[in-house]
Simulated scan of single mutants.
Amino acid sequence: MSGWPQARDRSGPGGRRGRRSGPSPDPDGPDVAPGSTSDGDDPGDPEQVARSICLRALTGAPKTRQQLADLLAKRDVPEDAAERVLDRFGEVGLIDDAAFARAWVTSRQAGRGLARRALKAELRAKGVDGEVAEEAVALVDDEDEWAAARRLVERRLPGMRRLDRATAERRLVGMLARKGYGSGLAGWVVREALDQEWSDEDEAPAGHDQQGLDAWLP
């Protein structure tokens, strides 16, 4: 007698094998029931699809209305269905561009030292209305920008000691410009820092008085 296990007889009446009811799943993909998508959205209900997409997107981090609208368009959700869902999300507070903008400004100004000009540009790129962006950026005042610029320069200054003063000044001013600072404020902060670093009086620039500081203030 063979030691191999005997195969189970799966044949039905008349010796024919029984057939599983319903369509066979795609062997190369998930077993998805007809009329549904792999993530559970009903393709016949665009608003349900839009709601599911938005909720998943908002799980990771807050989004602006424009970011969600772009995502829905990319997923081929009809525009009218997308508008209705986005309106509803706004009504219940799941979309709040003003709150998003305030949080963005606070985080990016403290963490990256960005100036108001750069912050405003980032908010506009995310679809925040110009007036809403202006209100959020107003949370940063002149003293905040001054302090942030000085911190940025102080962090970079040790790496500039091997350079001559002119090269160090050019690079530091360029760094601040990329952060959104105007040339007046950037130049003042950099020269002040370099004056402390390079103590040679012959290199110290003249004109460091309140009048120079006022040049970049509105």
Rank of each mutant, 00 (worst) to 15 (best):
2 S>P: 08
3 G>D: 15
7 A>V: 15
8 R>L: 14
8 R>F: 08
10 R>W: 06
13 P>V: 03
16 R>G: 12
21 S>D: 14
21 S>M: 14
22 G>H: 13
23 P>A: 15
26 D>R: 13
27 P>D: 13
28 D>T: 14
29 G>F: 07
31 D>T: 09
37 T>N: 12
40 G>I: 08
40 G>H: 08
42 D>M: 10
42 D>I: 03
47 E>D: 08
47 E>R: 05
49 V>E: 15
50 A>W: 04
52 S>W: 00
52 S>M: 01
53 I>P: 07
53 I>A: 10
54 C>I: 09
56 R>S: 13
57 A>G: 02
57 A>S: 09
59 T>P: 00
61 A>M: 13
61 A>I: 08
62 P>F: 15
62 P>C: 14
62 P>H: 14
63 K>N: 13
65 R>W: 13
67 Q>I: 04
68 L>T: 07
68 L>Y: 08
70 D>E: 10
71 L>Q: 12
73 A>D: 12
76 D>Y: 09
77 V>C: 07
77 V>F: 12
78 P>K: 02
79 E>A: 13
83 E>T: 05
86 L>W: 15
88 R>N: 07
90 G>T: 12
91 E>R: 15
94 L>W: 13
94 L>I: 08
95 I>T: 00
95 I>E: 01
96 D>P: 00
98 A>W: 04
99 A>F: 03
100 F>R: 07
102 R>S: 05
105 V>Q: 01
106 T>L: 05
110 A>F: 08
114 L>A: 00
115 A>R: 01
116 R>F: 01
120 K>M: 12
121 A>K: 14
121 A>N: 02
121 A>E: 15
122 E>W: 10
124 R>C: 06
130 G>K: 00
133 A>I: 12
136 A>L: 05
138 A>Y: 07
138 A>R: 13
139 L>W: 01
140 V>E: 02
141 D>L: 07
143 E>D: 09
143 E>V: 10
147 A>R: 15
148 A>W: 03
149 A>E: 04
149 A>M: 02
151 R>L: 02
151 R>G: 01
153 V>C: 01
153 V>D: 11
153 V>L: 01
155 R>N: 10
158 P>Y: 12
159 G>T: 03
162 R>I: 06
163 L>H: 06
165 R>W: 04
166 A>C: 01
167 T>D: 11
167 T>G: 02
169 E>V: 00
169 E>L: 02
170 R>Q: 13
172 L>Y: 03
173 V>Y: 03
175 M>K: 10
177 A>H: 15
178 R>D: 10
179 K>N: 06
188 W>T: 12
188 W>N: 04
189 V>G: 00
190 V>S: 07
191 R>A: 14
191 R>H: 08
191 R>D: 15
192 E>R: 11
199 S>G: 01
200 D>H: 00
201 E>D: 02
202 D>M: 05
204 A>M: 02
207 G>C: 02
207 G>Y: 00
209 D>R: 07
209 D>A: 08
209 D>E: 05
210 Q>E: 11
213 L>Y: 10
216 W>Y: 14
216 W>D: 05
218 P>W: 01
